[in-house]
Amino acid sequence: MEICKPAVAGTLESSDLMVTVEPGTAGIELSLTSSVMNQYGRQIKKTVLETLDRLEVKDAKVTVVDKGALDCTIKARVECAVLRSCDKSDKNIDWGGVIR
């Protein structure tokens, strides 16, 4: 999926994360801040990148501010931000396809 416009999903509350995606040109440029960076930074990064890969996002600036979210939350928020960025979040979501 192509990132057409900036979009955001999530909150800054505890156990959640805020994901911002913006159009980019140089691959995935990920900026990660986390309250549990030392323990789970690598895991969060991996989950974000895997989700983006599954959604076939090639170029994007991605900003993640994590407040200790679980992997399923991270996945959901990334998916939501990407779908919103290409106006695909309101209908015909590819459930069971790239969204699983």
Binding site: P6, V8, T11, L12, E13, S14, T20, E22
Partner: peptide, 21 residues
């Protein structure tokens, strides 16, 4: 109690809908 986080989240959402990223 994490109230600032809620306030900031709310303000960011509002700003984003108004085109300020």
């Amino acid at each position: 109690e994490g109230l600032l986080n809620e306030v900031i989240t709310h303000l960011m959402e509002d700003r984003l809908t108004k085109g300020y990223f």
